[in-house]
């Protein structure tokens, strides 16, 4: 929990002994899942999205994830942010059909435009559950922001499949996953080696595919990130200068008081 970590951070200096006492005691019954930390192109104050990885990640999303998961807050035009050209985006969109109302007033489909939202695989949650044994695949639009651990969590789940320990009872149709809370996940292992064929010749290992799709999904959850960080660097540099000047004025103004 972020709030907990935050308070620990802020409270720690003042707390001393009491806190030490509290943290020394074993936590509750639930075991803590430790997500391996990955290096991401987009982490840190100057991090940017690795364009090639994000484009490959879109391919993984498009060919694998999108069969079950929606990305309904995203638009095809958002792909411009990972440097796909207007023509490429138009072609990607045109290959999908989205529901519309025809001239005769009946529901029909038309090719998607860049201004359309990503097509959802199911018309609604009920249809998804009906098709998937009762499980509802979460929408992936903001998944990076919606999970503790963010990119490391998604990467962990995508690569964390394996055989359950001998003493573990698995539910019907459930799959064992090291990093999923409770270790039982309804989603079957989505990525395999060479599940997709990358146009740029990158070898499509599970790790590579996971890394790429996480980059793409992080972009889709935070399309503003690069603009935000660039602006932040300027704003803070400006404020530091302004603080310096203001403090100098303060010293001068107060010089006669002390």
């Amino acid at each position: 929990m972020r709030a907990a970590r935050l308070l620990t951070l802020f409270g720690a200096p003042a707390l001393g002994l009491l806190a030490g006492l509290a943290f020394a005691t074993p936590a509750g019954a639930e075991e803590e899942i430790v997500l391996p930390k990955q290096n991401w192109s987009f982490s840190g104050p100057f991090g940017t999205f690795d364009r090639a990885a994000a484009q490959r990640g879109f391919q993984v999303y498009n060919e694998v994830c999108s069969n079950c998961h929606s990305l309904k807050l995203g638009y095809y035009r958002n792909l411009a942010g990972i440097d796909l050209s207007e023509e490429q985006i138009k072609a990607i969109a045109a290959a999908k059909s989205v529901p519309t109302i025809g001239d005769d007033g009946q529901p029909t489909e038309r090719p998607a435009l860049p201004s359309d939202h990503f097509r959802s695989p199911y018309p609604n949650d009920k249809a998804a559950r009906a098709a998937l044994n009762g499980a509802l695949p979460p929408d992936l639009s903001v998944i990076e922001k919606a999970r503790v651990g963010g990119p490391d969590y998604i990467f962990g789940v995508l690569t964390g499949y394996g055989e359950p320990p001998a003493d573990m009872k698995m539910g019907d149709g459930m799959n064992y996953n090291k990093y999923f809370p409770g270790h039982q996940i309804a989603m079957p292992q989505p990525l395999q080696d060479d599940q997709v064929t990358y146009a740029d010749g990158t070898k499509a290992t599970i790790e590579q595919e996971a890394r790429d799709v996480v980059t793409f999904l992080t972009y889709m959850a935070n399309p503003e990130m690069e603009q935000r960080k660039r602006m932040g660097v300027k704003v803070i540099a400006f404020l530091v200068l302004l603080t310096g000047v203001t403090y100098a004025v303060k010293r001068k103004v107060w010089a006669d008081v002390h």
Partner: peptide, 10 residues
């Protein structure tokens, strides 16, 4: 600019 979800809950 750099940790906009620091205080938020996922």
């Amino acid at each position: 600019f750099f940790a906009p979800n620091l205080f938020g809950e996922p």
